[in-house]
Simulated scan of single mutants.
Amino acid sequence: MTIKYDFLIVGAGLYGAIFAHEATKAGKTCLIIDKRNHIGGNIYTEKIEDIQVHKYGAHIFHTNNQEVWEYVNQFAEFNRYTNSPVANYRGEIYNLPFNMNTFNKMWGVVTPDEARKKIEEQRSANYVEHPQNLEEQAINLVGMDIYEKLIRGYTEKQWGRPCHELPAFIIRRLPVRFTYDNNYFNADYQGIPIGGYTAMIDKMIEGIDVKLNTDYLVEKSKWDRIANKVVYTGPIDAYFDYMFGVLEYRSVRFETEILNTPNFQGNAVVNYTDRETPYTRVIEHKHFEFGKQPKTVVSREYSVEWKLGDEPYYPVNDRKNSELYQKYKAMTETQSNVIFGGRLAEYKYYDMDNVVEFALQKAKEVLRNM
């Protein structure tokens, strides 16, 4: 193969699509490759029973950045969906994030002052000066009742180990609001693209060459020769053939089914916070777009241990993995023609608006210097 493109974009997710769009707009040629059989990465949506199903879990776009919001609105019209999940603890329903509706249900308190006093009372009863684990940290922040009903079971399922064995830094702070407001994100701009995220990505990369079912790392040297520069959005440790070891993740397994009912749970997202329920949450996809279809599609989400070859979802940003990542990050300096970006290449959990912001920044920087 001879050089044919200015950029080879490895990964057809949000980061890669934005970079490719900006490069193409600047007159550069791009080829996008992805080892999956679809574009969109983890925000991929597919239509089932006329419902846009979030194949890799719920994705709600939210941001306080007006520039980011205006950017994505070039490619899709967004609806007015507001993320207001609820928690199911053994049949008791609580609003999330923790707000006055939560406190009223939990303790019968009515005013913010009453709620503050109740939380302070519970915090004081079990306060630990220097919390050594997540359990102590969470109780320090919100007290025993909220911890036991709304944090402990969900967190232990999410991470696959008891809270007293998890590091305190996982919960630096917990959102506590003394208003009757169930808006989880409380962002200036929020919504979901009408017609799904796949259509939005498709519009971003319109006219750009795309090759799916193609694993860059299997024939890396071949693909490197096809372009002047590579934009790599895959796992950073895989790029360097795991020379320092494998970075750890948590993975997710989904059980999705079509139900012959127009409304299964009355909300898009219900978290199951007891330890006994094996799944962490149930997503009813039609509610993301206020659907009126006669049937519904639900996905039960299970947090599972990750092993090499599984889909990586959440980086385990503990000290060991953070130090390992720094070794790989240092190695990126040796790759002058490769741009590393996105959650896997940077081993960091990103909200979608951050992905947009950083992809735009990187594209401007790279294109300005060409």
Rank of each mutant, 00 (worst) to 15 (best):
I119Y: 01
M106N: 02
T82G: 07
R123N: 10
V128M: 13
V110G: 01
R123K: 12
Q74K: 15
Y94F: 13
R80L: 12
Y94R: 03
F75V: 11
I119C: 07
N99A: 08
N101S: 09
W107V: 10
F98N: 00
Y81V: 09
R116N: 11
G91F: 00
E70G: 08
D113Q: 15
F75L: 11
F75T: 07
E114P: 03
I93Y: 09
E114F: 06
M106Y: 02
I93Q: 07
A76D: 03
Y127I: 13
N88Y: 07
E77P: 06
N101W: 00
Y127G: 01
N83A: 07
K118T: 04
K117L: 13
W107T: 07
T111Y: 08
E77K: 15
W107H: 05
Y94S: 03
E77D: 15
S84D: 04
E114L: 01
G108E: 04
L96D: 02
T102I: 08
N79Y: 06
E129H: 11
T102L: 03
N73K: 14
F98K: 04
N104L: 00
E120P: 05
P85M: 04
P85D: 05
Y81Q: 11
T102S: 08
K118F: 00
Y94E: 03
S84G: 02
Y81S: 09
A125Y: 07
Q74N: 15
K118Y: 01
P97F: 05
F103L: 07
A125M: 11
R80I: 15
N73R: 13
D113P: 01
S84R: 13
A76K: 00
S84I: 01
E121L: 12
N99W: 00
N73V: 13
V86P: 03
